[in-house]
Amino acid sequence: MATQHSRSAARFMMAPAVILLLGWMLVPLTMTLWFSFKKYLPLRGGDLGWVGFDNYVRFVSSSSFWPAVQATLVIVLGVLVVTVCLGVLLAILLDQPMWGQGVVRILVIAPFFVMPTVSALVWKNMFMDPVNGLFAHLWKAFGAEPISWLSEASLFSIILIVSWQWLPFATLILLTAIQSLDSEQLEAAEMDGAPVLKRFWYIILPHLSRAITVVVLIQTIFLLSIFAEIFVTTQGSFGTRTLTYLIYQRVLESQNVGLGSAGGVYAIILANIVAIFLMRIVGRNLDA
C-alpha cells in the first residue's frame, strides 16, 4: 500500500522524535563516559586531567560499593518476590465472582497513583514512626516494644513501602493475563479430574508465565533506579544505600563527578542487561 511518496513523508514525520531521543541518549551518555575517565571535582579544582580506568577501579573497590550492590539486590529481589507472589494471589482473587468487583479493583490499584514522595513520607511518619506511628500503637496494644522501623529494620521497611507501590502494577497485569485464559481450558482440566491446586500449577501458572516475566523485567528496570523512597526516608543510611543512591551521592553531594560517572556507566550496563531480555519479549510480540 505504501508508495515511494508516502515513504519519504513517513521518514519526515518520524524525524523529530528520532532526533530528540537520539540527542537525549547520545549527548549525556557521551558526557558521562568522558567524565568517567577524568578526575573531575567541580568544587575542588575542577578538571584535574585524565586518569584512565582509575574511577572504575576506585568505584568498585570503595568500601561502600559491595554494601550498595547488596542493598540493591535485596531491595529489588525482595520487592519482586513480594509483588509477584501476592500479585498472583490477588489477581486470582479479583478474578472470582463477587459483589462490588469494580470498587475492590479501584481500592487495590490506588497505591500506584500515589506519588513516591507521598507514599514514602506517609509510611515513614504515620506508620513506621517509633513514637506516633500506627505500627507503634499496634505493637503497644499487644504489649510489645515498638520498633524503630527505618533504622532497625531499614531494608525490610523500604521493601514494604516499595512493594505497596508496585503491588497494584503486578496485580493489574496478572489480572489482565488471567482474564485472557480460556475458561474452557480450565473446564477441560476439571473434566480430566485435576484438583484445584493442580489446575493452578499446570494451567494457570504456565499461562501467566509470560505476564510474570514482563512484570519482573519492567519492575526490575524501575526498581534498580528507585530514588525518592530512599531520599525522603533514610537518605541512604542504615544500610539502604543502593547503587543508584550511591552514585547520586558521589555526583551531587560529594561532587566527585568522575567517580560518580564511572558508577553511572556501571548502572547503565546493568540496566541494559535487564533491558535486553525485556526487549526480546516485546520484540517477539511485535511480530505477532
Binding site: 505504501a2 518520524m14 541518549m25 551518555l29 558526557m31 543508584t244
Partner: peptide, 29 residues
C-alpha cells in the same frame, strides 16, 4: 507506512527509556 526498520526503531526508542537516570544526572545537570 511500516518499513523493515520500524521494529528496530521502536525497540531502540524503548531502550532509551531503560537508561538509568542517575547515570546521566551530572551531564543533564
Amino acid at each position: 507506512v511500516p518499513s523493515k526498520r520500524t521494529k528496530d526503531i521502536l525497540l531502540w526508542m524503548l531502550s532509551t527509556k531503560m537508561l538509568p537516570a542517575v547515570g546521566v544526572l551530572y551531564p543533564i545537570y
